[in-house]
Nucleic acid binder design. Sequence first.
DNA 1: TGTGCGATCCACT
DNA 2: GTGGATCGCACAC
Length: 199
Amino acid sequence: MTKLEEALPRGFYLQDTRVAAQKLLGQIVQRRLPSGETLSGIIVETEAYLTDDPACHAYRGQTPRNSAMFGPPGHAYVYFTYGLHMMLNLVCAPKGIAEAVLIRALEPVEGEDTMRENRGGISEIRQLTNGPGKLAQALALTRLSHNGLDVTAPQSELQILANASPPFEMVTTTRIGITQGVDLPWRYYIQGNRYVSRR
DNA sequence: TGTGCGATCCACT
DNA sequence: GTGGATCGCACAC
């Protein structure tokens, strides 16, 4: 990488959450480990969750679990589910309006070897980050350390960087793994990208 | 204080 | 294609 990349500004997360989810495709998630090593990947799949959306964790109001979604935009909402998986979301909309974009898949850019270790040593590179639970494990994200973290701060160990990605076709579909709001077409992915979790 | 289940993944058939 | 793993959280009692 020769280009100096900058974090997306907080204002990015104030546009319509569905538009933000679309525009996050092609941008970069960068994770700085305590060791100083950098892990990063291109966002290739997202889903939008809106405040009046029955599939959204915040639909029934604020709880200790989802409180990060009610905070300011440009922060991470990291939660634990199914007894073993972490999920990475980016909080959108002004403080008090609980909306977020779920990051569902990445294309690895930096730190592939460490991601492989974090994923239990699996060899197939496609399997490192082609799903929301997988990418959180590959990036060693935890609720304790990363929930509520500001992803726009320059020193943050988790940032979203602007990236001049080559042009791509975007596919819009319904969301995955939910039981409410199943007909809402708020899932977006880069057409033909091999790291997309599922077609 | 108890109970049911989830924005998933993986192994097995 | 199906079911088990596994536990924090929300909500009912």
